[in-house]
Design a protein around this nucleic acid. Sequence first.
DNA 1: CGTGGAGTTGAATACGATCAACACCGGTGG
DNA 2: CCACCGGTGTTGATCGTATTCAACTCCACG
Lengths: 204, 204
Amino acid sequence: MLTFKLHNSTMQVFQDYLQQHTPIKKEQFQLLKHTLLEKKYDKGKILLTEGGKTDVNYFVCSGLLRAYTLDVHGKEHTIQFAPENWWIGDRNSTYFNEPAAFNIDVLEESEVVIITKDFMELAQHVCLDFAKYNIHLLHNTIRHMQRRINLLLAATAEERYLDFVHLYPKLTLRISQIMIASYLGITPESLSRVRKELAKKHSK
Amino acid sequence: MLTFKLHNSTMQVFQDYLQQHTPIKKEQFQLLKHTLLEKKYDKGKILLTEGGKTDVNYFVCSGLLRAYTLDVHGKEHTIQFAPENWWIGDRNSTYFNEPAAFNIDVLEESEVVIITKDFMELAQHVCLDFAKYNIHLLHNTIRHMQRRINLLLAATAEERYLDFVHLYPKLTLRISQIMIASYLGITPESLSRVRKELAKKHSK
DNA sequence: CGTGGAGTTGAATACGATCAACACCGGTGG
DNA sequence: CCACCGGTGTTGATCGTATTCAACTCCACG
């Protein structure tokens, strides 16, 4: 007998992730499943708006989401990209019950699992060690943000771009330069020139 | 009978803080005390060096510490200030067992409590809810860092300075402009001019 | 086709950095 | 007590990097 498995379902991707990265096992996942929701979003869809409220986070199974803010001039500033197997959500709203600090939109058609508050609470009851994983995730987030702050303080546009390429080589190809520029804190025109300079150096 | 209490001991300040902000109570603190160390450091003392290793964090009871990095030109970039009742430490080293990402030095003569790994572990056994406080602290750190990243991406030097003054009004007076500039990501000269402009606007 | 967004390039501009000079303390030692 | 010194903060002149605004090419997509 042959079993065909063409591709994993959205929920299956999430379950696989949990089993690989957290102490939550198959049987435990079954107890948690009812607190989760799977969704598919089209490119351009806005999942959260600055100042709004939400009590869910997202786990991206396929596609690409983004967190960004708008300044007084209407320019976008990217806080975070979330490709497959990344978490994204607004802590201000989900954890502190305050208005959201940023917007979340869909850069590529994406399949996501919606992580409710119920899931977070229940997961810690069902699996005591889940809290440890959670803390690990928080520390890791802080480490990355600290690194980014340091780059914004100390590095030139070129250095920041090279760091981005090094850290997210696959994303560099998927994400438009407009978006990358808004993540690096420069204009798209400047990024274009940075890339031109790098190409020149590299060809020598 | 009169009781004189001229000033709190370093350890007492820390105990008071825990009792106010965490679920750790008097009796529980007694069980934890032996994992803590109190120290007094002179201005200029360097507690941690980039690339080094440490397994302790600090709680500042009095004085002022600072976390900073050095770039290739030898310039300092301030990651964080830690005045009284703040925590400071290098996660890369204490949590991830990797080389420290930054330096920590003493800006004012300071009394600190040294928080060992033993304390963190024991505290969670002695008081189950301490973990929740810890998570709260992590979320809060992330919130602040996200805000800072957004300011570095979106705001002018003047806006960043105003935000700093608003967020840390007391620190503004205690910290030299050289240090504030290195926190904002500008030169001391630029900060001086920003302040001049603000004074001009304000006097109109 | 043709339309609109992405990326590139150029010219002018603005903002902060750099370099240098100087005033102003606060502390130290003769 | 005063002279000196080093660090801080200010100001000016100049420089450099990134921004702004505009024009143009190149595709992808309807």
